[in-house]
Amino acid sequence: MNGDELRSFLLTNNTKQATEWDAIKKAFNPETVEINGEQVYVFDMIFDLTVTPIEDPIGISQQLPTAYVPMHIHHYIELIYVYQGQCTIVMQNGKMTISEGEIIIIDKRTPHAVEGISESDIVIDIKLKHDYLSSSFLSRFTHKSIISQFLVDSLINNRRVNNYLHFPFENRSNIAGIMEHIMCEYFEKDFCSADMINSYLFILFTELIRHSNNSNSIKPVDTKQDDIVLEFLKYIEDHYKDCSLTKMASHYNYHPNYASSVLKKATGKSFKDLLQIQRLNKAALYLTNSDLPVAEIAEKVGYTSLSFFYKKFNDIFLQTPKEYRENKL
């Protein structure tokens, strides 16, 4: 299936008659639970009587214009993507309209419903059995960058507070192409389609993290403070070899104590800790991508004492530089 075939497939689907809500209730007999004083249904399936509850790592379906499902929750994370047009997401604290190219990720056990889909709107629903927004999964993105680690932590904290993440991408963003590939593989499965989908999902969440600091919907309330933190982290990444707190603070016309406090509050780490992490991450890259001697690598990343470099490297990676290089071969 290619992009044109996918569009034709989705347009044809949109003309189908959805299963009536009474039939869904009768077939699945969903239980209800009370959340924040409201009774909501519990569903871990696609709302189509021809589809069984999710057995694969993901389940993808199309929200039909004629479908109706009241407030409900899932035990899985749900990703809603507007392929064309728009739709309205109903949450317990209000409504949100998302438009073409945008994504909303709704956390587990978060009451919600989808409404306002017309015949010209195409809305895609993806239920994720694996938690692609867990700390353990997202740590795969952060191995060599203190900035990406900060963005991931911000993403996780925002999800924890709001129970959803909204990514207001435009339809011409990279997200559209990634989502198209995922749907093509899912709706017309071929050899290794499951592996392809998992790979595209990794790319998708990488793209979400890359753009998370550009989205007003997922920024912390103190946007100015967040921008300052990113500037500090960028400075450390760019000047890790000879960086100092005094130099960095002076570069931005701040007092060193203020810069130190901002970094500690935002990241939970001191300036020295962040500098060590960045230097050691660079050293790890040299170890895996060059034949340079360890002593030369230590010097290149800003260490004057080889024994101190060995100690700090072992503290972070729990192995010597030599062991790290051998294990990565």
Rank of each mutant, 00 (worst) to 15 (best):
His166Gly: 02
His166Asp: 00
Pro168Gly: 01
Ser173Met: 12
Asn174Val: 09
Ile175Trp: 04
Met179Leu: 13
Ile182Arg: 00
Met183Thr: 00
Met183Tyr: 00
Cys184Lys: 09
Phe187Asn: 13
Glu188Val: 10
Lys189Glu: 11
Asp190Glu: 13
Cys192Tyr: 09
Cys192Val: 00
Cys192Thr: 05
Ser193Arg: 06
Ala194Ser: 14
Met196Asp: 07
Ile197Pro: 00
Tyr200Trp: 06
Tyr200Asn: 07
Leu201Asn: 03
Thr206Ile: 04
Glu207Ser: 07
Ile209Asn: 07
Ile209Met: 12
Ser212Val: 08
Ser212Ala: 12
Asn214Met: 11
Asn214Gly: 06
Asn214Thr: 12
Asn214Trp: 04
Ile218Ser: 07
Pro220Tyr: 14
Val221Thr: 10
Lys224Trp: 07
Asp227Thr: 06
Ile228Tyr: 10
Leu230Asp: 00
Leu230Met: 12
Phe232Arg: 03
Leu233Ile: 11
Lys234Asn: 14
Ile236Met: 03
His239Arg: 09
Asp242Val: 13
Asp242Pro: 01
Thr246Tyr: 13
Lys247Met: 09
Met248Asp: 02
Ser250Thr: 10
His251Ser: 14
His251Arg: 10
Tyr252Asp: 02
His255Gly: 01
Pro256Gln: 06
Asn257Ile: 08
Ser260Leu: 04
Ser260Ala: 15
Ser261Lys: 15
Val262Thr: 08
Ala266Cys: 05
Thr267Met: 05
Gly268Met: 03
Lys269Tyr: 10
Lys272Arg: 12
Asp273Tyr: 12
Asp273Trp: 09
Asp273Glu: 15
Leu274Met: 09
Leu275Tyr: 03
Leu275Gln: 09
Gln276Ile: 09
Gln276Thr: 00
Ile277Trp: 00
Gln278Tyr: 02
Arg279Met: 08
Leu280Cys: 07
Asn281Phe: 10
Asn281Val: 08
Lys282Ile: 05
Ala283Glu: 02
